[in-house]
């Protein structure tokens, strides 16, 4: 099966390992990820604040490219990029004033957007198109006896009337995928609370505090490790682990991986192949999962 693939800036940057692991397991699952031609940044979380028309136009440009490639669906591993594209389409469809101005912009740029492309998170594709059973079939090293805190964050779920895949309050997608790897999913109260990343560009002390809250909450609810579904959560919860440890004087770190990295481990790949960070790799080795 082929699907249009939008990596997003982060997973071609500091969160490159998100892309690496996603590509790797897609291959295992016989899923051909066709990178969107000449894609641009979606501007999610920034441009929609600054200028809704530019934001909407940027996202519709990507979707137009997908259509030109002959697909009706675009998968992304990043919740923010997903949210950005979905919000853009929702606004375009429901706000006639905005639509008028966006149409003008697109016309100037010679972009002919005519709808018909859905944005989906990569994990939705895994669940809907690949199927949990099929994923289970590919598991070579079941992740037995490890408790994984299942984190969703915000942009994958909310607003649920736009995102549409699952209940924003009682989500199950990440849990289902974790269960497929053989690990024990652990739910925790802050599973759908914000990781604080969006504050890093204006109010970093509170942003980091939120990250610490998430990690602590997962730990307090018995998680050995955490899994998340977003390139930007990755920057916030994984990349800044040591910073959080220092700042909040914690005597622990929380091993954390992106969801496809966890699946990749169960498929038998090494932490290095999946681009997993040093701390988590070390933990996985200690626990005998690598």
């Amino acid at each position: 099966m082929k699907v249009a693939y939008y990596p997003g800036c982060a997973s071609h940057g500091i969160a490159k390992d998100v892309d690496i692991a996603t590509q790797l397991i897609a291959k295992d699952l016989d899923l051909q990820l066709m990178e969107v031609d000449d894609w641009n940044c979606c501007g999610g979380g920034f441009m929609d604040d600054k200028n809704e028309e530019i934001h909407t136009s940027l996202n519709l440009r990507n979707l137009t490219k997908v259509k030109e490639m002959g697909y009706d669906k675009m998968a992304t591993p990043c919740s923010v990029c997903l949210n950005s594209h979905k919000i853009a389409v929702d606004k375009y469809d429901n706000d006639p004033d905005l639509k008028e101005n966006v149409d003008k912009k697109l016309e100037k740029a010679h972009i002919e957007y005519d709808g018909g492309v859905d944005s989906e998170h990569f994990i939705w594709v895994l669940i809907k198109d690949v199927g949990i059973e099929n994923i289970q079939k590919h598991v070579k090293k079941p992740l037995k006896d490890i408790k994984i805190g299942t984190y969703y964050g915000c942009q994958l779920l909310r607003p649920s009337n736009v995102m549409g895949f699952e209940s924003a309050h009682d989500p199950h997608s990440v849990m289902d995928l974790v269960a497929a790897t053989g690990a024990t999913p652990v739910s925790f109260p802050l599973k759908a609370s914000c990781c604080g990343f969006p504050l890093m560009g204006s109010n970093p002390p509170v942003g980091l505090k939120m990250a610490n809250n998430i990690l602590s909450d997962a730990r307090n609810n018995g998680a050995d490790m955490m899994v998340h579904p977003c390139s930007l959560c990755h920057l916030q919860l994984d990349v800044t682990q040591l910073k959080i440890k220092d700042q909040f004087k914690q005597d622990w770190t929380m091993p954390i991986v992106y969801i496809t990295q966890l699946i990749g481990l169960a498929f038998g790949h090494s932490p290095e192949e999946l681009g997993i960070g040093k701390l988590t790799a070390k933990y996985l080795r200690e626990r005998g999962f690598a």
Binding site: D49, P159, P198, S202
Partner: peptide, 12 residues
């Protein structure tokens, strides 16, 4: 305004 995380919880 810059203290908001845009997490859409309020919207939800």
């Amino acid at each position: 305004a810059w203290r908001c995380t845009s997490c859409y919880m309020c919207y939800e």
